[in-house]
């Protein structure tokens, strides 16, 4: 017990907590686009993490092979993923809007395999590293925080604010919010739902590109990287209440703290087990999501 208390108050534990907080920023950003798409179109994109993977490749090639500055490469990545989001809706989901929800989910699962295969055919299976390191910030002698994570956190927070402003202030944002509240009525009001769906898909895709830019600085990219953070992204969205962006944002931090704390006391995998176990338990207590508003 004494050991445990000691571990709890050690300086490294504080570092763990802060790192968890920063990881939460990345997770929040990952789940944002997925949540937006679900909220508006009512479809879960199982392939969302694979769109992020293709965004990471775009950034890698633009930066390493194309010699473009990182910011420009990231912008290119956002452009490509926005296009992929648009295409996903235009070529797949658009045909399944009236199908059973589970068929929509499975169709995006087909896209998951397609994107993985595409990446494997085009880029091979080797791990590629962007080779960019922003270094770390020394808070004290023992605590170091990676700049990449700090940046991710700041960008995630910034994007949430911008997205909220967009949704609550702009005309288009109001239309998007309205459509997520009542799909049928909106058509009667003369709203072109098709256009709105495509726009939302492109925005969701673009957010994936933003997440890709931050992930590319922290992890090697390979065709199957999506499988390593895809499931967490879904869990975050579901726990926050699918389509509820504030909930997703909070859930991201709960998840990231569980993962890092679990990783601190045992191995990182146990951190994931803890987080997923918590997710399952949370689903039983509040199936509509921990942070969902009561209707």
């Amino acid at each position: 017990m004494a050991e445990f208390t000691e571990a709890l108050f050690s300086i490294f534990f504080v570092e763990t907590l802060i790192n968890g907080l920063l990881l939460g920023g990345v997770l929040a950003l990952l789940s944002l686009g997925l949540n937006l798409i679900f909220g508006v179109i009512d479809v879960v994109w199982i392939c969302y993490a694979e769109i992020i993977m293709l965004g990471m490749y775009t950034i890698y090639f633009l930066h390493v092979d194309g010699g473009m500055p990182l910011i420009a490469a990231a912008a290119g990545g956002v452009g490509v993923t926005a296009l992929l989001g648009w295409l996903t809706h235009r070529l797949v989901i658009g045909y399944l809007l009236d199908a059973a929800p589970i068929n929509q989910l499975l169709a995006t699962g087909g896209l998951l395999f397609f994107f993985q295969g595409l990446a494997m055919v085009a880029f091979g299976i080797e791990f590629r590293n962007l080779g960019v390191s922003l270094g770390s910030l020394a808070l004290s002698e023992d605590i170091y925080l990676s700049w990449t994570r700090l940046l991710s956190f700041a960008i995630a927070a910034g994007v949430v604010i911008v997205l909220f402003q967009f949704l609550s202030r702009s005309y288009l944002g109001a239309a998007i919010r309205a459509i997520s509240q009542d799909r049928e009525i909106m058509v009667l009001m003369g709203v072109n739902t098709k256009k709105l769906y495509l726009l939302t898909s492109a925005i969701g895709g673009g957010l994936a590109g933003l997440a890709a830019a931050l992930l590319a600085m922290q992890y090697d990219v390979h065709p199957f990287i999506g499988l390593s953070f895809g499931p967490i992204t879904f869990m975050v969205c579901v726990m926050g209440g699918l389509g509820n962006m504030v909930g997703g944002f909070l859930a991201a931090f709960v998840f990231s703290e569980l993962i890092t704390i679990g990783g601190y006391f045992a191995e990182l995998e146990w951190g994931y087990v803890l987080a997923f176990g918590f997710f399952i338990a949370a689903m039983f207590i509040r199936p509509e999501g921990l942070f969902a508003r009561k209707s």
Binding site: F115, G117, M120, V121
Partner: peptide
């Protein structure tokens, strides 16, 4: 990389 083709076609 032809190894990815089955996955692609499958998808």
């Amino acid at each position: 990389n032809a190894a990815g083709v089955p996955l692609l076609v499958y998808g």
